[in-house]
Design a protein around this nucleic acid. Structure first.
Length: 597
RNA sequence: GGAGUCGUAGUUCAGUUGGUUAGAACGCCAGCCUGUCACGUUGGAGGUCGCGGGUUCGAGCCCCGUCGGCUCCGCCA
């Protein structure tokens, strides 16, 4: 028996045809002499009817069917009379079975795949243990197929523009800055290790040096860091690079690629996205990946409070911190409890407190006693708040205020449903800083990665900062030719124009505190390569999962991965990571001992 | 490394102030039912209250520890 149609295919036009469907028993409704089966495959659900009168054998077999049995059904397509089901795409018809073949039976599933009329899915650990069952859910089927379409669209886009898909090795060499590496022992070279790629960064640059001009790859990447709702230890990125490129050319490819991909969900992203410098994004939104689907921008109050004798604010301003606020429109009715919750929220980001002003019938504020009515009114006015609004204020170090208010802005928007889920707002953030300052060690680290080119305008500044030890702090002011693509508050892609001159690359390693020797040990092959005619080049990498999360309207990366890991980086289905045989370890010359904290 | 939160039947949950035999719905099993599509109906089975310890006459409930899920901070060049 061969399948003739899928379970999502049959319509009124098929009425009268003999068909064979194959799939899973989603539901059985037994009326004694009459039995209904909802037969499910990846394309949909079709109702199958077994009537004892005219199909005794099939009806008798249906008696033994249980949920998730795999069956083949042969029968005739019949129009439903007066019992059309508008909820089913195939609801105009049903198949009257004449023959049923049980292809396989199934144990009772450990959880109900989907409880109708409810969002109450089984606990996620249970579903992860039986991921192959959870994946039968239509929503996950849809997400995984959307992901396949997105990847296909990306290939279509880059193939069409003359990019060459090149695979790079998974077994690489550890380069200890950046994220922790996953390492793989070498049997042939006892005591030596490969590392899995955190990204194919250097290799794609080498494809430029090798003259391929335009490269792309759907690349699996590995980072041994803690997980988040949007982060897994292994993930996939679209990795691309092109020679003779400047930032604008890279932006065009970002816009073109995402524009092509978002057509999958019927969304037309603008041909040219808005641009915003990193500095402006941080100032206005407290984030380098602002969600532009709502306003609530940060407002500076430091000027208004200069010279205040309220000690907490005075000490912040003296330490060159800042005082900023956001305005929650129409939320002057927030309760003490709600404000306490928000205060707990900002404290996670290091904020000492959350001050507030409520502009209801009368103005109240947590700062009333400290600042007085007049000052409160002035602050409210500066913030742009109107009657009925709530002003939320954070004071502290600049980095803390931005992180806290930037996150609070998103939190309030979520709580108050200010985000239009059907709109998508892309943005290109430009002019990222070249370095990040580590306050503990007083060192500078690459903000993007150590191959990122400084901006031409900041080249002299860069040289001065590196070569003159007394001017080292100026590194914090150097801007890079680095950029991110942000959609709806997610960093969907990031990239840069790279350094193609060895002297600049040497300077950069020096800026990062690397000696010539250590730079050679790690990147010697790359430094060599730079000297053999490296074209100017640049590109970006786009997160496949994050992009798919937006396409699928989910906030969890596990919803767009077939076999994800838990927050503690385990696979509950195959129970990995696991032990290996003593013999395997011995062959590799590896002994396992307790890690020293 | 840290914080929050959750853990009770196969699943989702309820469980009062610490008090008799731990409940409901769905699912499962058996029967009845010719038009259901969240079928209906009758009956039934099903529990190490995550695990370990403590307090108590008595613990699902209180305390300590521990394990696991989720989320966040740190981390993620």
């Amino acid at each position: 028996m061969e399948r003739t149609h899928t379970c999502g295919e049959l319509r009124l036009g098929h009425v009268g045809e003999q068909v064979v469907l194959m799939g899973w028993v989603a539901k059985k409704r037994d009326f004694g002499v009459l039995t209904f089966i909802d037969l499910r495959d990846r394309e949909g659900v079709t109702q199958v009817v077994m009537n004892e009168e005219d199909a005794g054998e099939a009806h008798a077999k249906a008696k033994n069917l249980r949920g998730e049995f795999v069956i083949a059904v042969k029968g005739k397509v019949i129009e439903r009379e007066g019992t059309h089901n508008a909820k089913l795409a195939t609801g105009d018809i049903e198949v009257h079975a004449t023959e049923i073949l049980i292809l396989n039976d199934a144990k009772v599933p450990p959880f109900q795949l989907e409880v109708a009329g409810s969002e109450n899915l089984a606990a996620e650990d249970t579903r992860l243990k039986y991921r192959y069952l959870d994946l039968r859910r239509p929503q996950l089927q849809h997400n995984i197929r959307m992901r396949a379409k997105a990847v296909a669209a990306i290939r279509e886009y880059f193939d069409g523009r003359g990019f060459i898909e090149i695979e790079t090795p998974i077994l690489l060499k550890s380069t200890p800055e950046g994220a922790r590496d996953f390492i793989v022992p070498s049997r042939i070279h006892t005591g030596k290790f490969f590392a899995l790629p955190q990204s194919p960064q250097i290799l794609k640059q080498l494809t430029m040096i090798a003259g391929f001009d335009k490269y792309y790859q759907i690349a699996r990447c590995f980072r041994d860091e803690d997980l988040r709702a949007d982060r897994q230890p292994e993930f996939t990125q679209l990795d691309m690079e092109m020679s003779f490129a400047n930032q604008e050319m890279a932006y065009r490819e970002i816009e073109g690629m995402f524009g092509h991909v978002f057509k999958l969900i019927g969304v037309d992203l603008p041909a040219q996205w808005p641009r915003m410098t990193y500095a402006e994004a941080m100032r206005r939104y407290g984030s380098d990946k602002p969600d532009l689907r709502f306003g609530m921008e940060l407002v500076e109050l430091s000027g208004e409070l200069a010279g205040t004798d309220f000690a907490p604010f005075a000490s912040v301003l003296e330490a060159r911190g800042e005082i900023k606020c956001i305005v929650a429109k129409g939320k002057s009715d927030y309760s003490r409890k709600q404000l306490d919750e928000l205060q707990d929220f900002v404290k996670r980001y290091g904020a000492g407190a959350l001050a507030w002003i409520k502009l209801s019938d009368e103005t109240t504020s947590s700062l009333l006693k400290a600042l007085g009515e007049t000052k409160i009114a002035e602050l409210a006015s500066t913030s742009g708040a109107e009657k009925g609004d709530l002003v939320l204020i954070v004071a502290g170090r600049k980095s803390v205020v931005r992180a806290a208010l930037g996150a609070l802005r998103v939190e309030v928007a979520k709580r108050e449903n200010l985000i239009d889920r059907n709109s998508h707002k892309p943005l290109i953030v430009t002019e990222f800083p070249m370095f990040e300052h580590d306050e503990e060690t007083d060192t500078y680290m690459a903000a993007h990665h150590p191959f990122t080119s400084p901006m031409d305008e900041d080249l002299e500044l860069f040289k001065t900062a590196v070569n003159d030890p007394s001017q080292h702090h100026l590194l914090g002011k150097v801007r890079a030719k680095a950029y991110d693509a942000v959609i709806d508050g997610y960093e969907c892609a990031g990239g840069s124009i790279r350094i193609h001159q060895k002297e600049i690359q040497d300077l950069n390693f020096k800026a990062l505190g690397m000696t010539k020797e250590s730079a050679r040990t790690r990147f010697g092959f790359f430094l060599d390569a730079l000297e053999y005619g490296t074209p100017p080049h640049g590109g970006f990498a786009a997160g496949i999962e994050r992009t798919c999360m937006i396409l699928c309207g989910t906030e969890n990366i596990r919803d767009v991965m077939a076999f994800p890991k838990t927050a503690s980086a385990q696979d509950l289905m195959m129970d990995s990571p696991g032990d290996v045989d003593e013999a395997q370890l011995e062959e590799l010359g590896i002994e396992v001992s307790e890690p020293s904290t």
